Amino acid sequence: MSIDPSSIPSFGVPQQPAPAGQPPVIIPDQDLVKQLLDQMELKHTVDEEGDLLAPWEGFRVYFMFRGEQQELFAVRAFYDQPHDLERKAELLEALDEWNRETLWPKVYTHTHDDAVRVIGETQMIVGMGVNLDYFVAMTANWTQAAVTFNTWIAERLGLAAEEPKPDESAEGEA
């Protein structure tokens, strides 16, 4: 039995211009994300590795492009709250609950020395282009979800936490 090559979908089809009235298909970059963070009125900076980040009290959200052609866009949150190794099973149970019940960010643990920390992330392949409205909506939603998770995990584990707010001490770029 042979397969007709024309029946195989081509995922590398050149991008077609958007129909009139449709948002353009773009290949996003760090400057676009900076503009979006400015519109969201979020302070942001670029770290020593060149990654864009928006700091909150208690965690940081990074907006990173990875891959040979920067074709992978990731929003990754690093939560500063250390958790005791003895409570890791309870923490994992809570993270499993979050991962089952929500779309993003997917969260996991990182154990270093004698503490466990939580990282959340979500990713999108953008190298072939993406609808501008979709990219903007997903970036904003993923950022809000990172903030929501911080509140949720504090409540779920009975940790005292205030409503997360952007870290005003960070130097922002306009």
Rank of each mutant, 00 (worst) to 15 (best):
N131M: 05
D4A: 02
D51Y: 09
P24E: 12
A94E: 04
H44K: 10
T111G: 07
T109L: 03
W152K: 10
E57V: 06
M138R: 14
K88I: 09
H83G: 01
V130K: 02
V116D: 11
D38F: 03
I3V: 14
V25Y: 08
E93N: 14
M128P: 00
I119M: 13
Q69C: 02
V118A: 10
N99L: 01
L157D: 14
A18Y: 01
P19L: 00
K106S: 11
K43W: 00
Q69Y: 09
H83P: 00
V46D: 10
L159P: 11
I119L: 13
V118T: 06
G12F: 08
E168W: 09
Q15Y: 05
M138T: 06
T148M: 14
K165W: 10
P19Y: 02
M1A: 08
E173T: 11
Q35M: 03
L91R: 10
E162W: 01
K43H: 12
A140W: 04
L53H: 09
L132M: 07
A74G: 14
E68V: 07
V118W: 04
R76V: 15
K106R: 14
D51R: 13
P28I: 01
L91V: 07
W56M: 05
V13F: 08
F11A: 07
M1F: 00
A161Y: 03
P9I: 11
R87D: 15
